[in-house]
Simulated scan of single mutants.
Amino acid sequence: MRRAVEFALAAAAALWQPVQAAPACERPVYLTFDTGHMGVADLVADVLARHDVKVTFFLANEKTQDGGSSLDARWAAWWKARAAEGHAFGSHTWDHVVWQADVAAGLKARPTAGEQAGQTQVLDAADYCEQLRRPARWFTEATGQAMLPLFRAPAGRTSARLLEAARQCGFRHVGWAPAGFLGDELPSERFPNRLLRDTALRDIREGDILVAHLGIWSRKDPWAPAVLEPLIEGLKARGFCFRTLAEHPQYRDWITKHPLN
């Protein structure tokens, strides 16, 4: 009887042991996703959840395979679920506005989404600020959470004037490392998935920001999840760990000092 009581007490004590803290992330990389046609969004989410990887998503209201757009009511639940999982989020401009040149009146740009898709327009600083803030407002309404005060210019194209307009609006730009360009925008005929995977596993280094998309219209052999899962597994095997940009040393102070309301 005494031994039974001792066993029960030991079992109870084991149940009440403090939860072990997650191991420190000594070799972080920062995986990011820009919106796209969203055709692989569920597959990406499944892989990230299965491997307990947190990423940063950059949101634009792009055309989707289901006939809507990536920030319409049909996708609100998807974004809310990702927010609940602990991912981070930034702006990619509402209409996926690609900068072309600085002109006297402001920023010459061409959106690839929205009512003026494909039409060249000139935006002043206030116009560009609205392009940055509109995804943030939508995200907060859909999820109850705030975006990070970070953005990625579509195609990564910027100028000093554009960056200053964004800074005055409370946003800081995030690019990617040379090795962090994961190649999902490239033609699969010339850049097959195996090549992209092997190149990334060979070249990615500690601290790199990586970029991929939630679906690219032009790629015939989708990058995700075919490359995504073995890439995550391979990077972990090399001793890397994954963190969001909220923890990036280059952006932490900016995030703290410029919260989006």
Rank of each mutant, 00 (worst) to 15 (best):
A200R: 13
G106D: 04
V98H: 06
F139S: 04
A177Q: 15
I209M: 11
A126R: 13
D127L: 10
V98I: 09
F151M: 02
R197E: 10
T32P: 00
G207L: 05
E164A: 14
A166S: 13
R133L: 09
A10F: 05
L162G: 08
T93S: 04
T56Q: 03
A76Q: 08
T35E: 01
A13W: 13
V40C: 01
G170Q: 14
P222F: 05
P222C: 10
C129N: 07
G68L: 01
I216K: 01
H258S: 08
G234E: 14
L210K: 07
A41N: 01
G234I: 13
G144H: 11
N61F: 00
G68E: 03
R197Y: 06
L43H: 09
L235V: 09
A153L: 07
M1W: 13
E62Q: 05
L48V: 07
A12L: 12
H96D: 01
C129M: 10
T64G: 00
V5R: 12
A4Q: 14
P23V: 13
M1H: 14
K54P: 00
I255Q: 04
L186A: 04
G183Y: 02
R157N: 10
L195Y: 15
T244M: 07
A224F: 04
D42T: 07
Q131K: 04
R194V: 11
P23Q: 12
E130D: 10
A12E: 09
H173Y: 13
R194D: 14
L260K: 02
E62L: 02
R50N: 05
P28E: 06
A146R: 04
D95E: 14
A224I: 06
D124C: 10
R110L: 10
R133I: 04
D52W: 14
W217L: 06
P28C: 07
K257N: 08
T32A: 05
P135F: 13
P23M: 11
A8S: 11
A12P: 06
R134A: 07
W176Y: 14
P23S: 13
I232A: 06
H37P: 01
A226R: 15
A81H: 08
G114N: 05
F7E: 10
A76W: 03
G36M: 02
G170N: 15
L71V: 11
Q20K: 13
V211E: 02
R3C: 11
L43A: 14
P154R: 06
R137K: 13
R157Q: 11
A83S: 14
L186I: 06
E26W: 09
A126M: 07
F181M: 07
A83I: 06
E206Q: 15
T35D: 12
G207N: 03
G68S: 04
V122P: 06
T256C: 14
F33G: 01
A109P: 02
R27P: 04
P18R: 00
A226L: 15
V122F: 12
Y128A: 02
Q250W: 08
A142N: 00
M147T: 05
F151H: 01
K108V: 03
C129P: 02
D198N: 12
R243P: 00
L71R: 06
T120A: 11
